[in-house]
């Protein structure tokens, strides 16, 4: 139990996927202008990360490792994730149109999100078991959402302020991200 809590807090705060490990920077900077879309994107990422961990674990443990082709994991995982995301998009679109409206539009963005592939590879690199993998993915997803929501509120302040011409747009966003990242450095000693 204790180790699960440690994994959860590590992937959520001390090793935050976006602000410490730099995975999923594109959606972090791209979809963080509004609260609503930040929350929608965050929930979609949590869902896909957890499901991707559930899908990839049996494939890695019961197919790739016994056959001695675990070096094929990148190819196998990326295809699994792409197929899975496509499938979920189709199912949600047909069965739950309301959910599709709030969540589904972010799904295509996620296929090439390195946080999702990253979490599955980290699971195997750290040789987590099934439950630990799920907790790691859950923590990573929550950490991603947390960073996205915090950053969305920081950005709404920047929009209103007066900044030099050459810093307008992307440069000011990146510098704001640096300051938010500094605040996450405070968590480093949390689990020490």
């Amino acid at each position: 139990m204790k180790i699960l809590l440690v994994i959860l807090l590590t992937s959520m705060l001390t090793e935050n996927f976006v602000l410490v490990k730099f995975m999923g920077i594109c959606p972090f900077l791209g979809v963080s202008k509004k609260y609503d879309s930040a929350i929608g994107m965050g929930l979609a990422v949590i869902f896909v990360m957890v499901c991707a961990s559930i899908c990839t674990y049996p494939v890695y443990t019961f197919i790739l490792v016994p056959l001695g082709i675990d070096y094929m994991k990148t190819v196998a995982f990326i295809l699994l994730i792409a197929t899975f995301v496509q499938l979920v998009e189709m199912i949600i679109h047909k069965k739950v149109p309301a959910l599709y409206k709030s969540l589904g539009v972010y799904l295509p963005l996620i296929t090439t999100n390195c946080a999702v592939l990253g979490v599955t590879i980290l699971n195997t690199d750290n040789s987590y078991n099934f439950l630990q993998s799920i907790v790691n993915a859950l923590g990573g997803g929550i950490g991603f959402t947390l960073a996205l929501i915090i950053f969305a509120s920081v950005r709404s302040r920047i929009e209103a302020s007066n900044i030099p011409k050459s810093f307008a747009g992307v440069p000011s966003t990146l510098i704001a991200a640096a300051i938010v990242s500094v605040s996450f450095m405070g968590f480093t000693s949390l689990l020490a």
């Binding site: 594109c26 900077l29 791209g30 050459s166 810093f167 307008a168 747009g169 992307v170 440069p171 966003t173």
Partner: peptide, 10 residues
């Protein structure tokens, strides 16, 4: 002028 958007959008 720097681009206002980041990532694939830009």
């Amino acid at each position: 002028k720097p681009p206002a958007k980041v990532g694939c959008a830009a």
